[in-house]
Design a binder for these strands. Sequence first.
DNA 1: ACCCATGCTGTTAGCGGTAACATAGCCGAT
DNA 2: ATCGGCTATGTTACCGCTAACAGCATGGGT
Lengths: 353, 353
Amino acid sequence: MANQNRQDPPPVTKPPGFDPRRTLTLRDVSEASGVSEMTVSRVLRNRGDVSEATRERVLEAARALGYVPNKIAGALASQRVNLVGVIIPSLSNMVFPEVLTGVSDTLEDTGLQPVVGVTNYSPEREETVIYEMLSWRPSGMIVAGLEHTEASRAMLAQAGIPIVEIMDIDGTPVDSAVGISHRRAGRQMAEAIIAAGYRRIAFCGTMMPYDHRARKRLEGFEEALHKAGLALADREYYSGGSALLKGREMTEAVLKRTPDVDFLYYSNDMIGAGGLLFCLDKGIDVPGKVGLAGFNGVELLDGLPRRLATMDACRLEIGRRAAEIIAGKHEGVIGGEIIELTPTLQPGDTIRR
Amino acid sequence: MANQNRQDPPPVTKPPGFDPRRTLTLRDVSEASGVSEMTVSRVLRNRGDVSEATRERVLEAARALGYVPNKIAGALASQRVNLVGVIIPSLSNMVFPEVLTGVSDTLEDTGLQPVVGVTNYSPEREETVIYEMLSWRPSGMIVAGLEHTEASRAMLAQAGIPIVEIMDIDGTPVDSAVGISHRRAGRQMAEAIIAAGYRRIAFCGTMMPYDHRARKRLEGFEEALHKAGLALADREYYSGGSALLKGREMTEAVLKRTPDVDFLYYSNDMIGAGGLLFCLDKGIDVPGKVGLAGFNGVELLDGLPRRLATMDACRLEIGRRAAEIIAGKHEGVIGGEIIELTPTLQPGDTIRR
DNA sequence: ACCCATGCTGTTAGCGGTAACATAGCCGAT
DNA sequence: ATCGGCTATGTTACCGCTAACAGCATGGGT
């Protein structure tokens, strides 16, 4: 309300116009080069036949003026927008930037451009972000996760563009999906741990109620334990703060509370790394006395004193495949592909062999 | 051709038409609620007076239909775009996501929305990204760094919108700038190191020719060494790969090649952390025999066995201030503010006291 | 009664491009 | 000469929405 109280109430009419810094339009270029706006448009988009001479002249004029086309007008007229919305929960997770890399890479030569939206793991925020994105009429949407509000699902379904939900496939996608089964990943890890002879197994992880993928991993994990006649010996949750530090703290807490724990399963590699550092600090024999495992395969781990057992989440590949679906779907209205990728277990040095 | 003469109610328009999934327009909502498009528009934007009854009816209709406004058309008509372009070199650096957080936070209640572009430290790519961004006619631009191609600078200068260059202030901005002096930061760190009694000082850092800020820090650093009659005892560069791992490797290489080195200055905290882990692994006395320092103050460091000396780069604050400039500049055409923030030295546990 | 402020709604004319369809030269084949 | 069939360019009608202004009741104030 307090923005324009003393600036320029004066001449409301437009005729006095002459604004030297008015932003340029096709007309300016067309006048400067002596051809119609249409021809300029054709040159600038490389569409249709234009004589070499004219092309040169137009390009020269455009360059000289510093003309930058107005995509808003272009998009409205052509009903085409070269944007792909990508909606992710967080940027500080390292996982998502990597997915983004995969997306950008494959989108690069399609003329499509990713636009990122961040939800901070809030379904309401996600709904807003989806709405905002859709209001720009993108050519497709890539959304992390399968869990959304009713309204979000409805909007995506109605949008009439390809939708790809990524990361997870344990559920029902709106349209297409590319990801891994986190439930299965949890199960597999549990099986490997049990096979290695560990029995007193504890879990450390995020408490975020909306990190569905971590939840599913834990579910799969417990399921497998159960099948082997075991149950979690202890569990510890955290939220916020430095993940590495939290990993240390949780590990300490668990080992103090339940001293006979012989394995710690972390919901992500970062806290796992914290746990590893803690154990090494304390001189705990890893993986002899205590085994450790995380999830994700973050690059960071390469620099650790010991390689943490983990499971690759196929982030890059997920980004690529999702982008391919969007890019290739130009006409096939009905998509509904589901692509399940299979993560590989990387035993590292923190599970007994 | 035979267009609409207003006496032709029959389906003259779009004869093949009947598309049940055609995307909705204001007209659909207006028909569904029995008012003019203009009134619907007013309701949806909360602008102008509309009776409570009408408002209800319109909102109900819009909701029922699942209408999502078309911002492309809206922006074209109103000549207003609520977007702010944010151009950064990389997402995998952790530094930039944090800047973004600062930007989003302050933009939140201004109705402006950040749109991110990533350049991968390539000036040419940056030029393209700037061009693309500007073609959407954003309300402002936030660009990392002061070094750009001629064309980039020209485009930004001509755009007629507020431009804020961030992170760095050692140079001449196009318009406004918010950041720290990296040259000074390097100098300060060197002074602290010298004051602590270290004399055989080496540098480990990125080789990227376009990481101007790392370069400036090193320049300032060497300048201060020089003033104290010292020079770098050794230096080591890297590019690509896991920063943590590279930190280990570079540290090992330097200590092997120049065994009498008593301090290692890293161009960022991640490789610094790698160096720290290496030293601890090898049982090297830190900070007694060898001191270490990085740059940035990344949260990660909190979980390390020892707190690495570093210097906060004020990332969040930079994002906030930049956003404030954009948001507050609605009319003040001439901006040109330069805001220098002052990073604080955090000695941590890796410099002798 | 008159007038104007006020609240609510509709009408008109674009915003800056592009799709689709003319149009105009020019060529060789008929 | 006549007729396509190019190539290169111009014209027209929107795309979906909003600024600006134009109604038209209603309701005091004087």
